[in-house]
Amino acid sequence: MHFAAVSDIHGNLPALEAVIADIAARGITQIVNLGDSLSGPLWPRETALRLMALNWPTLAGNHERQLLTIDPAQMGPTDAAAHAAIDDDIRAWMTALPGTMEWPGDVLLCHATPDSDDSYWLHRRRKGSRGRMRESTHEEILPHASHHALTLCGHTHMPRAVTLPDGRQIANAGSVGLPAYEDDVPSWHVVETGTPDARYLSAQLVDGRWHVTLHAVAYDHESAARRAEAMGRAGWAQALRTGKMS
């Protein structure tokens, strides 16, 4: 059993296409999507249509929820850009997406944690570090962990695979489409992977145990950065070019 998991595409169609090609080159035919697929200033409509045609098992992330429930006048610029680009057919597709999903082999798929679509799990804000992130400890991870042998998540855009003392595994696929960002909820922080690469993971069941591999894929990130600039999002352009915030 061998499959790939992508997450946090954020409307970055060139990054998505590069990841699809890389997965195919590895001979992997099953792909799951952990959510936050469209939100952003890049290609939200085109990305939605591509994903709808692919018909992968797909979750709703916090940005799908926000796009469907927040008054457009109250949206931040990232959600507002996607909201303006999508139509009722895309909204209907988003509405039908589940928040979590079980996968064969005792696997749980979620966006952020099994019980939340917007909680940070495998990484936390480091105190006194100008908002930079650190890896969560096992003690911080355990309260959210399910009973499944493997749980896959996204949301923080930072790839990581963790094995708990009892053998349960949790892995974050990273972000296909946005390698860095800053946010002020619940307090100001900066997420940076340090490279412009698109990220995803693959998982293979061997002799009853899952083996997770984190992948980084180079792609034409300059085209995405120029798109962000054309949409008035200089911060996104910086993140897409460098994997860092200025």
Rank of each mutant, 00 (worst) to 15 (best):
M1D: 07
M1Q: 07
H2S: 13
F3G: 02
A4G: 06
S7D: 11
I9G: 03
I9T: 05
P14S: 09
P14T: 05
A15W: 12
L16Y: 11
V19N: 03
V19E: 04
V19S: 02
D22M: 07
A24P: 03
G27I: 11
T29W: 00
Q30C: 03
P41W: 13
E46D: 14
M52C: 01
A53W: 01
L59M: 01
L59V: 03
R65C: 06
R65N: 10
Q66A: 15
I70V: 15
P72I: 09
Q74F: 04
G76F: 04
A81V: 05
A82V: 06
H83F: 15
A85W: 09
A85I: 04
D88W: 10
R91Y: 10
A92N: 13
A92V: 06
W93I: 01
P98S: 11
T100D: 08
T100K: 04
M101G: 01
W103K: 02
G105Y: 11
C110Q: 09
A112E: 10
T113D: 07
T113Q: 02
D115Y: 05
D117K: 05
W121G: 03
W121D: 05
L122Q: 08
H123L: 03
R125H: 06
R125L: 08
R125T: 14
R125Q: 11
R126D: 11
S129P: 02
R132H: 14
S136K: 06
H138E: 11
E139W: 08
E140K: 06
E140A: 05
I141D: 00
H144A: 11
H144W: 15
A145M: 15
T151A: 11
L152M: 13
C153W: 02
G154H: 10
H155L: 04
A161R: 13
A161I: 12
T163G: 01
T163Q: 12
L164C: 00
I170T: 03
A171D: 08
A173L: 01
G174D: 11
G174E: 09
G177K: 11
A180I: 09
D184C: 07
V185I: 15
H189I: 08
H189W: 12
V190Y: 09
V190G: 06
V191Y: 09
V191A: 13
T193C: 09
G194Y: 08
D197R: 15
D197M: 10
S202A: 14
S202W: 04
A203N: 04
L205Q: 08
L205Y: 07
V206Q: 10
R209G: 00
R209P: 00
L214E: 10
H221C: 14
E222L: 12
E222H: 14
A224F: 14
R227L: 13
M231F: 07
R233T: 02
G235I: 04
G235H: 14
W236R: 03
A239C: 15
L240P: 00
L240H: 00
G243I: 04
K244C: 15
M245D: 02
S246H: 13
